[in-house]
Design a protein around this nucleic acid. Structure first.
Length: 393
DNA sequence: CTTCCACCGGAAGTACCGGTAA
DNA sequence: TTACCGGTACTTCCGGTGGAAG
């Protein structure tokens, strides 16, 4: 047994370096030293924040842009640079970066902000107002500028409303010594319309828009990183151009493009090749999608799986299903396994959740005399993957 | 123009869980 | 130990609705 393991390890080590020099450079959370084609946005952000180095409070900022247009990278990059400069100028600046999609409850967002000042906040148990009080206290004792970057706030606001934002935007009224500036980052341009007007005007003191990259720009980004991430010669200009083209078709998402390149490299490495080829990229594209669906389906809660089963049945037999049809099929399935079925109200919500995960499409339609309902579909090519993922339980 | 279908989706409430603080 | 907190997962109740049919 152990010699098999030894053999694998040995082989891996031998192969090491044939494709990658430093794979981390292609990971989504890596912040490169240069961000091509984002000079304008960087300059604008710096110009707004730079007054913080003189002890003034910068304007709050709203950043818009689709996924993978460099919003997060630019923000982190600028904040990092600002922190490096601050001490030599005698400015007291700290920042909190919170992705409200990953940290998705009020408690955890506020806790995470407070922790970035060095506070120790338990994972749960204390009142939100208590965290707020402690945070304000800590700010006052410290007396600097705290920059709070809230990534994907549209996602948070959709789920929990804008109360927290309202509070944070007005926090300066509670502060004597310290200052707080907020950077809100959103993928959804329409999201501002849902905000309380007071929050909107305060948060949107400054606005920066990130437009999608075109294929040419994506190529520059990928090419620059590929030079550092891959062994020389392991990846050709043609391959990088191909990845950029694929991603450009999907609304210029740089993260997608980087994933594609990285996974293609991993596949090439796994197959013992010494350079990445088109076929590896094609396989990578399939693997990424497969992995995404499989992961999402297999981690679904029990009843969501049962609902998905009902939808799959209806899609296979008649192409699509309405909420009512799904519900009765779901009830049948649930009872056959001996589970108490949930209410239709809840199932309707579960269908929406499946839609949000991209596992199904739910369209609300009015059929006049025949009522209002949701028509739910699943793309044919996803059915087999889903059945595989569901089959394991 | 009205009716009425088959749901939608907001609001409020309940039960439970893992956690803190004193 | 007890009182309390927030999050999750659900239920109950119910007003609301676009447009084909009459």
């Amino acid at each position: 047994m152990s010699d098999i393991i030894d053999k694998i390890i040995e082989e891996r080590l031998k192969r090491h370096g044939r494709i990658f020099v430093n794979k981390e450079i292609l990971l989504p959370d890596y912040i490169p030293e240069t961000l091509p084609h984002r000079e304008r946005e960087i300059r604008k952000l710096v110009e707004i924040l730079v007054v913080g180095l003189k002890g003034e409070r910068p304007s709050n900022i709203l950043i818009y842009g689709l996924t993978g247009t460099g919003k997060t990278a630019v923000t982190k990059f600028v904040l990092k640079k600002l922190m490096e400069k601050a001490p030599s100028l005698g400015a007291r600046i700290k920042y909190a970066y919170v992705n409200t999609r990953k940290v998705d409850t009020t408690y955890r967002v506020l806790a995470s902000i407070a922790r970035s000042l060095g506070l120790r906040i338990p994972l749960s148990g204390i009142a939100i107002s208590e965290i707020y009080t402690r945070y304000v206290q800590a700010l006052e004792n410290w007396g600097g500028l705290h920059i709070i970057a809230l990534d994907e706030i549209d996602y948070y606001v959709k789920r929990h409303g804008d109360d927290l934002l309202y509070k944070l935007v007005r926090i300066n009224e509670d502060l004597e010594n310290a200052k707080v500036a907020i950077i809100g980052i959103t993928n959804d341009i329409n999201f501002v319309d849902t905000l309380d007007p007071r929050v909107r005007s305060s948060l949107g003191e400054e606005e920066i828009v990130f437009s999608p990259y075109d294929a040419e720009q994506l190529f520059d980004i990928l090419w620059e990183r590929a030079q550092k991430a891959f062994v020389p010669g392991a990846v050709s200009e043609k391959i990088v151009r191909y990845c950029a083209g694929l991603a450009a078709r999907e609304h210029g998402d740089a993260r997608r493009a980087l994933d594609l390149l990285r996974v293609a490299g991993e596949i090439a490495e796994r197959q013992g090749a010494n350079k990445v080829e088109i076929k590896h990229v094609i396989q990578a594209s399939r693997e990424i999608e497969y992995g995404r669906i499989y992961q999402a389906v297999s981690t679904l809660p029990l009843h969501a799986k049962l609902v998905l089963n009902a939808i799959i049945y209806l899609v296979k037999t008649k192409g699509s299903g309405t909420t009512g049809e799904i519900y009765s099929k779901y009830k049948e399935i649930a009872m056959s396994y001996g589970y108490d079925p949930l209410t239709q109200r809840r199932v309707s919500e579960i269908i929406n959740e499946l839609d949000m995960l991209g596992l199904a499409t739910a369209l609300v339609v009015n059929r006049g005399r025949y009522g209002k309902t949701k028509i739910v579909k699943i793309p044919r090519e996803l059915l087999t993957i889903m059945e595989e993922a569901l089959g394991e339980t």
